[in-house]
Amino acid sequence: MGILIVLESEKGQLKSNSGELLSYGKALGNFMATDVFALSINCSAQSSVEKYGVSKAIEVHSEHLQSFNAKNYADCVAEVSRKLNCDIIVVSSSTNAKYMSGILAQKLQASYTNNIVDLPIEKSPFTVKRSVYSNKAFAHTELNAAVKILGLTKNSFGQTLEQTETKTESLEVTTSSSSALEIKGQDTLEGQVSIADADVVVSGGRGLKGPENWNMIEDLAEVLGAATACSKPVSDMGWRPHSEHVGQTGKPVASNLYIAIGISGAIQHLAGVSSSKVKVVINTDAEAPFVKAADYAVIGDAFEVVPQLIEKLKAFKIQNG
């Protein structure tokens, strides 16, 4: 018995979702009354792990795991979980975690569900609550295999700081680096936050009239340290790249704050962004469906409201450090 939390890193740094994964794993350990281990690959995690109350950190260092390869990472996690006798594996909802976990589930003949939004509902039969129908509903799902893989939805559980003393142990794995897949390179948004990692997302729709008007969206995002996103027609028309398309058929958004500007709030759009904690809408039309679905709405012209909001936020930033 034991719980293995799989942390993710980038260039030797733990990813920002680690705090929530650790907090969840720790709470799950209390719930199941079992040991909790936090695994990091090619990255030292002790200083983060001890902040979230997890007392056992496992580090794997291997030149074979330098860059992410889903099969090799799944091999590594499988081997570590077997060595430590863990029957619950907690993973994030990042693109890489989803890529790896299907492979891992088959390898371990495990029950795997992702999009989990809370601690299990019941221990026996082991039942979790997860979002389905692209956030339009929740399912209570029983996981009945001996090994269980739980994919946690970002921002569903939150972080709980709890200092503890952590012991770090290094484990050797037999994972190889062989793969027919060859990585040619990556294009990343240097200095910009991704939609997946962002706490705040600023999103623009057709109401913005054209790509030339996105400066104010970018400026607003910059003041807030936010990622930029858009509705589907905006990316279909080529105003913004596809990577910014959010919604049921685009990327999901689970940020703390989602600001929708000139977006009507079609059912497919709302489905994808509804896991965001707080939603603000700026729209000329008080009857737009998004208004009802939002927490705060400003009924007004984006071309007047947004520039003012940027100035006021800048002033707020200066005042509040």
């Binding site: 029950s111 795997y112 709405a297 909001l309």
Partner: peptide, 29 residues
Amino acid sequence: CKTADTAFEKPSKKAEVELIDAENLDELI
């Protein structure tokens, strides 16, 4: 099968939206 959906629920009703006057964005902040 390795999993079974035993029940479903719909998201709970959220609180009413708060309307903020476009002339008073400080309130929003």
